[in-house]
Nucleic acid binder design. Structure first.
Lengths: 215, 215
DNA sequence: GTCTATAGGCGGATAGAC
DNA sequence: GTCTATCCGCCTATAGAC
């Protein structure tokens, strides 16, 4: 019953060391820019072990990307399906997503760039999550928005367009902060992070302003 | 006075054929993913000619990226510096930028991804444009917003934050449309382009709603 | 499971003929 | 200016010793 023999534990450690190193290198350099030698060096193991555990660079890459996307969903988008007040939910999503990816914009950039090249192989890889988790959870959000509209709590809006507004306002300044910050001559920014953290209030106002009846 | 000898014309043609091919391939595959062989094949010329005209792959790439960024500015961001009414300007920017890059999202994606890796070499390449064109033009926009606030025409907002709102709402759904469209179970979209074109009105409303006094 | 050694291909760049 | 031929390094993947 106990399969945690020392040999098995060692395997897991090496396998995971490779995975974590691959994750780091792929995020920094992208699929094309990363080499298996880079990853092996980062993991402190021999290059051949990558193929032993993961068969090919592409397979390792897909596993890393899959993990990143699932984590992005868990840490951030899952909030949208929780049974809480719509306004509170939007505030929570904006604040939490900003907090999560502000200090780790490269991971977000990696996910968005690599998935923008989606082919059938990648789509298949996410088929399960899309059908059984991502899309059903979003549907809960769409339904909640429709209910609030019917109750007259908020102005009539297109739920998908609302979602797009929220995602856009939160994500783009994070993913492309390196460029965008150079366009800010309006004020001297000592810390871009601090600026974007404070901006969450602006984003929430912008969103809620188009929803609230008395705005 | 006439320096358009046939030999000079031929040179320009080949040089430009390479440039246009490089542009196409870099945009499709990115810097790392593109090979000089790809580019030569696309241009219908010999691989060695790339080095004859452009010295190295990196140099060719930087010239392509530079052209793309300048064109992005000319076609889209320059609007922000024109002497027109603020509300009309925002409408024009949203509609024109959407129209320009909806049918060419890969170019936008290319610019944003490659510049997100900015190092000192890239920054130097844009030093001139940043100092003498991009930033001064943006300053005109910031000033216009401030003037409208002082006149009481619009509610007090942070001009840079307003710019970020506009950019984010317009660009992210275009650059990452391939993924985002998969999250839309709310409505059956026959044509993503049509959807995003119609959405410009939503975006304009969202922006103007936070500006107008009577909203 | 982990290593060394190496296969085999593709990358960018260049020399030299025409 | 344009081509062919080639150098040389780096890449991924694998065979085989331990």
């Amino acid at each position: 019953m106990d399969d945690s023999g020392s040999s098995s534990l060692d395997n897991l450690q090496t396998e995971e060391k490779i995975f974590l190193a691959a994750r780091k290198v792929f995020i920094q350099k992208g699929f094309e820019g990363a080499s298996t030698a880079d990853i092996a060096k980062e993991a402190g193991v021999n290059k051949a072990l990558l193929n032993y555990y993961y068969r090919s660079k592409e397979n390792l890459f897909l596993k890393v990307l899959h993990k990143c996307v699932v984590e992005l969903w868990e840490k951030s988008f899952s909030i949208l399906a929780q049974p809480i007040d719509l306004f509170e939910k939007i505030k929570l999503f904006v604040n939490q997503t900003t907090e999560t990816y502000l200090s780790d914009y490269q991971t977000l950039n990696f996910i968005l760039y690599e998935t923008s090249k989606w082919d059938n192989k990648m789509i298949d890889m996410f088929k399960d999550e899309l059908e059984n988790k991502f899309l059903p959870e979003l549907d809960l959000f769409y339904k909640q928005v429709e209910e609030e509209i019917q109750k007259g709590t908020i102005k009539p809006v297109d739920p998908f367009s609302l979602l797009l507004d929220i995602i856009s306002l939160v994500l783009l300044p994070i993913t492309h902060g390196q460029i965008i910050i150079r366009l800010n001559t309006y004020q001297n920014i000592t810390d871009h992070y601090t600026f974007l953290r404070n901006r969450t209030n602006n984003i929430i106002n912008t969103i809620l302003c188009q929803l609230k009846q008395d705005c």
